[in-house]
Design a protein around this nucleic acid. Structure first.
Length: 190
DNA sequence: AGAGCGATGGCCT
DNA sequence: GGCCATCGCTCTA
């Protein structure tokens, strides 16, 4: 499901627009969902983006139509999930860095092997583990696939700041989060 | 609170 | 061969 008001035409706008929407994964083990509270922009011009050097077998999903799900695997054990933006060929997307758990919290705890709600989904690798998102879901679409978007909450205040965990273009203010939300991974401000 | 570091595997400057 | 859009544990405070 893609709500009509969800604007995925441009990564910078979408990264802000996506905050507060509910990210859902309907998996065989059950449904998990949470409000998106932290995002990052990645475009082709950006040296830190997986799309920067053009299309490869790893990143083809990023070059599909907006609403495509791009999942990557890194550090030998973690996954990250993006929602592709722009038009086919643009190679841009929004990394979902944190959510506020809303549905399927017991399933999330089991997958994360913890009882601590504070550390369930406050990071890109944590939320994909909690929601059961892996490479099999790479290339699926929010209009037809098991990962989709539903209406959520309206953010009161959005903070724009620098991204996390990159070695290039570190000064670019291409991260957004909902002010005051306890699930945000890193609270640096500019 | 924060620095340091090992784990672990897909993919390519 | 070497690099990661990370995490959790351990050590110093």
């Amino acid at each position: 499901m893609r709500p009509r008001e969800l604007d995925l035409s441009d990564a910078y706008l979408a990264a802000q627009n996506l905050l507060g929407w509910k990210l859902v994964h309907q998996s065989p083990q059950g449904r998990t969902a949470g409000y998106i509270v932290e995002t990052e922009v990645y475009t082709m011009d950006d040296p830190a983006s997986h799309a920067h050097h053009g299309e490869t077998p790893r990143n083809t999903a990023m070059f599909q139509e907006s609403g495509t799900i791009y999942v990557y695997f890194t550090y030998g054990l973690h996954h990250g999930v993006n929602i592709v933006t722009g038009i086919k060929g643009h190679g841009q997307g929004v990394l979902i860095r944190a959510i506020e758990p809303v549905e399927g919290i017991e399933l999330m705890k089991m997958r994360r092997n913890t009882q601590n709600n504070k550390i369930l989904t406050n990071g890109p690798g944590k939320l994909t583990q909690a929601m059961g998102i892996n490479l099999e879901l790479r290339g699926t679409d929010i209009d037809t696939g098991p990962i989709f978007i539903e209406p959520g909450i309206k953010p009161v205040e959005i903070i724009q700041t620098t991204r996390v965990g990159i070695s290039k273009a570190q000064s670019k203010p291409w991260r957004f989060y909902i002010y005051g939300n306890p699930n945000v991974s890193k609270l640096v401000r500019l």
